[in-house]
Amino acid sequence: MKHFALAPLLVTVLLAACGTAERPQPTPAPQARTLTVFAAASLTDAFTEIGRNFEAAHPGVTVSFNFAGSQTLRTQLEQGAVADVFASANQTEMDTLVKDTLVAANSAQVFLTNSLLVILPANNPANVQTLKDLSRPGLKLDLADTTVPAGKYARQILASLDKDPALGPNFSTQTLVNVVSNETDVRQVVAKVQLGEADAGIVYASDAVAVPELKTIEIPAADNVIAKYPISALSKAPQPDLAASFIAYVLSTDAQATLKKWGFTPIAP
């Protein structure tokens, strides 16, 4: 039975380890702090750069990002995920969080707008030249799912294009038949088009900037959706002061220029 003696010891060590994790962390030195930012998938490149600049301006601060579809992030926050800042690709998810009292009313502010366009693989396998070609039978069109803002906007745009006499009233119906997949976030659409597996996709203008080799077709401004991105601190943010200064930085001329570089429309002049 001697060899059993180690087992209780091991269990004790394990339980002790659990205990440590549950205890509140000792107050960290003011220098070493982590700011947690939940941001829409379309912000991946721009916010990574903005985060690096923010870290450079605030020594000791680490910005930790969680990029995913806005609705996924909203669900995670509702289920108890801890974050300081939430940057959404649409107002709906922010409003839901306000209703859940996770975000204070009127604290969210729009920090950029984003429009959509059609992307094609570099070699354009289906030889798509105009929007009309999207309704050609057999074309492989990739869209974000209707639960994803970009997917919802893409369908709004197609419906609006039905009014265009050159495209005809059945344009959206014929085009939606060509949808081969409803992706869980907009970056998946970019990936499938970039790999040439889909003939076309409808994504944010910013997504096309991130992958310069993609070909693009503009959508007329009258039919396009201007997506407004709101940002806010969460009411239970562990680092409220850092959250506030991060949001202030995102709205600054400096960060707005970074956002513009990545294809977004800045709100600051």
Binding site: T75, D142, S181, E183
Partner: peptide
């Protein structure tokens, strides 16, 4: 599945995919 086959109801949307999207609905 979601990477290689995508997500389309009746064609490639298996139960785990439907659950993932259901979570968001």
């Amino acid at each position: 599945t979601i990477l290689f086959a995508g997500n389309l109801i009746g064609k490639t949307q298996t139960m785990p995919l439907a659950i993932y999207l259901g979570l968001e609905r």
